[in-house]
């Protein structure tokens, strides 16, 4: 119960951070870090896939409603939630990680955790940005957005994931 409340708190905090902070930094059209994906990253690895999928969809829907998008975030978060098991298996090996309740730094090596975070962030934002542009005409522009936004997003998400794993979920 305590852990569920913690996850609810993390969910709300990440959505608020995205909507009120990162969506309001009007630096450039190329700067749009999508950091709320950290929630799907830190979900317990042994959680039933159906719950991961539903929570991913709920996360996307919440951000969609708060930012005026009509399904874009649901598409990208649900896809990442669906692919999460495959991504972890690809990076850490099938036997790794799934017997743990959270992506623990003891079970995950730092290298694996970095790979996991990078893969999740890149897959999510690639789906988001390409679906948003819906055109191959501006593919270079979309790729540039992807690279710049992802560099920032990976650092922020990495910091958030470390903070949550070491400080919040450990207690």
């Amino acid at each position: 119960m305590q852990r569920n409340l913690t996850y609810v708190g993390i969910f709300l905090t990440l959505v608020l951070l995205q909507v009120f902070l990162f969506d309001n930094i009007a630096l450039s059209v190329y700067f749009h870090p999508l950091i709320y994906i950290a929630f799907i990253i830190i979900l317990p690895l042994d959680m039933r896939p159906v719950w991961v999928l539903l929570l991913s969809a709920l996360l996307g829907l919440t951000v969609d409603m708060a930012t005026g998008q009509a399904g874009l975030n649901v598409m990208s978060t649900t896809a990442v939630g669906f692919m999460r098991t495959a991504i972890v298996g690809l990076i850490c090996g099938r036997s790794m990680g799934f017997d743990d309740t959270i992506p623990s730094l003891h079970r995950f090596t730092t290298k694996n955790l970095v790979g996991y975070v990078v893969a999740m962030v890149v897959v999510h934002s690639a789906i988001y940005f390409f679906m948003e542009s819906l055109s191959m005409m501006h593919i270079l522009h979309t790729l540039l957005r992807l690279v710049i936004s992802d560099i920032v997003a990976v650092f922020v998400v990495w910091y958030i994931v470390r903070l949550i794993i070491e400080r919040v979920l450990k207690n």
């Binding site: 598409m75 649900t78 896809a79």
Partner: peptide, 11 residues
């Protein structure tokens, strides 16, 4: 879920 989201986004 993807189909519903795609439908909403496309429309």
């Amino acid at each position: 879920i993807e189909s519903v989201a795609l439908y909403c986004y496309a429309h």
